[in-house]
Nucleic acid binder design. Structure first.
Lengths: 117, 117
DNA sequence: TTCGATGTTCGTGAAACATCGAACAAGCTA
DNA sequence: TAGCTTGTTCGATGTTTCACGAACATCGAA
């Protein structure tokens, strides 16, 4: 649970991003994060074991799509919109639109009502 | 060498396209075809064995990125720009721009001077 | 029909990937 | 300190991918 590695914006590669987005679960995760809000790990819902979810989040992080922050024993994930837009203008938008259209990764979501009332 | 299968425009999937574009050689092939011209198989140059090149072209075709046409014993490939634009507006453009910027698949090209003089 | 050119398919390995459960590490809390 | 929570890492397993050379199929030309 040590601080994970994040590539710099300039080191994000096209093929890396494409590979990361070639899995429906990861696309679903990106969709969940698309609103720009930071999400807690435990808030994320996906139909896989937690070790597998951890793996997918790692792939997204390594590809430079997300950033992970530690806080005590739990961690939070956020989409690197700005970095992605700078490196690959329009790409994220196009992917998100297509993902919405196809409803890719619909099985992924967030635990409803993170904040009470 | 029978007629290969091509998915219809509506059957092209986002993850399929992403997976197809997660390999530098295939991105290079798409770049070569990006001008919209139809290319002969033998015109294409890539640093792999011909069976491997055949494999990559098959992946692109199966993903719906290209269309292959037979003519006698040789075949021609063309990028399905219109279908892609209809299904995933802006995606191809964004990918091509990013690929140019990074020079992904620079090892792929065409045999120079297909037409004499 | 025989030959040559052009791609595809097959058989095979090596590497990468997705997935799981179990074990582990690190930080709160009692 | 002991225990709980939260993720990560490990090891195993099965699938997929990439790569090659060899064999094959198909067509045009001699």
């Amino acid at each position: 649970m040590r601080q994970a590695h994040h590539p710099e914006a300039g080191q994000i590669t096209l093929t890396g991003v494409m590979a990361a987005l070639s899995d429906p679960i990861r696309v679903g995760l990106v969709r969940v994060l698309a609103d720009g809000r930071e999400r807690g790990w435990g808030e994320l819902r996906a139909p896989v074991a937690k070790s597998t979810l951890s793996h997918h989040l790692r792939v997204l992080r390594d590809a430079g799509l997300t950033r992970t922050r530690q806080e005590g024993t739990r961690c939070f994930v956020i989409l690197r919109r700005t970095d992605l837009q700078a490196r690959f203008p329009g790409l994220l938008q196009a992917v998100l639109a297509a993902a919405e259209d196809e409803d890719v990764g619909h099985q992924v979501g967030v635990k409803d009502a993170g904040w009470p009332a």
